[in-house]
Design a protein around this nucleic acid. Structure first.
Lengths: 337, 337
DNA sequence: CTGTTAGCGCTTTCAG
DNA sequence: CTGAAAGCGCTAACAG
């Protein structure tokens, strides 16, 4: 028995294909005994409808695309969990696409998604540039697009973000209150919505507390984390050496941590560090590395929820919803090591 | 222009659907000028063939399923990267399914995959039990199944694993050579292939070095990491307190680390710890937590490669291939904190 | 209550 | 070299 389908079952039962189809879908126009007969056979033969045949017919694929820069990264990994949880609940399937922070690839993926392979898209933009034409095309095709974390405000998409500005402010203030006078801000891409907002929070916090803004302490780092050691080491060795560092992403906290180790700069005695990160990792770190834990799982869930809401009402009433979640500042108490 | 398809393009060009289709697929039987005309229009209209229509016809979906216990876990996250990289190369798409280590869910997913939604499956078994009937059914349907990391030897599937036995041996010997006399082994599920192999390596290393095997130091932990504090704390407080701990998975290393912190047991002075883990995290840890870094990315790549090899030759010559990759023991040098 | 029929969009014979 | 037509498996409108 290779692949069972409606036809084979219909033949076996001496019924028509449509009757079998309807019986399985519990149509009101089918007799109870017939339904039972059909369902029994379906059970026995382990029948599963071919999803692509029905999607062709129903113009609904039951798939959604998740487009993210990478997944070997706790933030996106947890977001996937959230998205998959909701999708499974709603009977949808998640196709995963990785851009590797490469705009070319992102555009290629977008082109690909125009084929009708999915009913909707959840994405986090690559940080490479702010060219968003390909996203517009997708929307024009009528595909709902939800952005999360790395969003763009000019696209009119529904978005899910954390309170990046507030968190940046909070993180910086945290360092100031801990006595830091020279606070550095590390980020990766100018084009990243999150990086911009966090930086604004950083700047405003400095201003509020009357600390000068030193451009040399604002470090534009590389996506290739290998390359980040050098500039960070250089900064730590300069006369401008910061006594506090705010890393806008986890990866940069790792780089910072390495650099401090290399220079035998004790954290937090010599340098205090605060970073956006993931709770599980945070708890493993040496004390002194405070963390802004982002609710990645919830962001995923929210993004999926927004998407399915749009899919369900499928009408054009496209009011872009903006959901902002709070990231929590977590301070690891010292264990006195 | 809602959705472009062959029909619309054919009408526009005054050609038949089949000619357009053939032109796009570069069929030898189509004239050069026609080909060019067709391709130009396709480009202009941004034509993308409907994948589900062609999959219905060609009986090939272009999708593969990845079934893993979870993804908020560095190991699987990196594996996904490897798999997606190869899949993208081969023009396949990756559908992701999470079992949450729940056998019920795994079986449900397996049932679902019988529908013909995917051409092949890469999976890592849930640790819940060794019931593998659902996997057999998939194979009987003719779906290639590749197992990685959490494999089963009785299924005749191609597999990709790390050298679990050797690594377990190596890790234990590492602790012995560092002077440990009472070495504990922490694991999660008896049914897990990896846990079994690692434990055997652990036992054999103890035996080789003439150390007694103390069953009380072999701790069967919970999948719910919250619940693991108590038994670990209990062990660390007992008269059997180990001076070395081998955690078979990263999560248990985290639990161990927390427990040691609670008790103010310094690592590695009081307790030496070695764990399977991920390199990036490992480098962040306090010194003393050595790591067996698993080549997760490569495992993903290899698994995908095996799958596509089977898909390409699609013939039945189903010789199960076994790939074993090496995990590297990484020792973090002390920074003298 | 059940069957017949016409497609969804595409590929692929089989005829020209 | 090109077109007509059948059909992948399923659903839904239309007949009985």
């Amino acid at each position: 028995m290779d692949q069972v389908n409606l036809k084979k079952m219909a033949e076996h039962l001496g019924l028509s294909i449509s009757t079998v189809s309807r019986a399985l879908r519990d149509s009101y126009e089918i007799g109870t005994k017939t339904k039972l007969k059909v369902k029994a056979l379906a059970e026995e033969w382990n029948y599963m409808p071919n999803p692509y045949a029905s999607s062709l017919r129903k113009q609904r694929t039951g798939n959604i695309a998740l487009v993210v820069p990478e997944v070997a990264n706790n933030f996106f990994a947890q977001a996937i969990n959230g998205i998959e949880a909701i999708a499974q609940e709603k009977g949808y399937h998640v196709l995963i696409y990785l851009t590797h922070d490469d705009l070319e690839k992102e555009m290629e993926i977008a082109r690909h998604l125009m084929s009708g392979r999915v009913d909707g898209i959840i994405m986090s933009l690559s940080g490479e540039a702010n060219n968003t034409h390909h996203i517009k095309s997708l929307k024009e095709k009528g595909l709902p697009v939800i952005l999360f974390d790395r969003v763009s405000e000019t696209l009119g998409c529904s978005t899910v973000t954390t309170d990046d500005y507030a968190a940046g402010f909070k993180a910086t203030e945290h360092l100031i209150k801990a006595g830091c006078k020279q606070i550095s801000y590390l980020f990766i891409s100018k084009h990243l919505y999150t990086a911009q907002k966090r930086m604004q929070g950083y700047k405003d916090a400095l201003a509020k507390h009357g600390l000068p803004l030193n451009e040399k302490l604002i470090l534009h780092c590389s996506t290739d984390n290998e390359k980040n050691q050098e500039p960070i080491l250089k900064m730590l060795n300069s006369k401008n050496r910061p006594d506090g560092i705010f890393a806008s992403v986890e990866r940069l906290a790792i780089a910072t941590y390495h650099a401090c180790n290399t220079l035998k700069l004790k954290i937090p005695e010599k340098v205090k560090v605060v970073s956006f990160s993931n709770l599980e990792i945070a708890s493993l770190l040496n004390p002194g590395l405070s963390t802004l834990a982002q609710p990645a799982f919830d962001m995923g869930k929210q993004a999926a929820t927004l998407l399915f809401r749009q899919l369900e009402k499928k009408s054009g009433s496209n009011i872009a919803e903006k959901i902002v979640l709070k990231s929590e500042l977590i301070q690891r108490e010292s264990t006195g090591r």
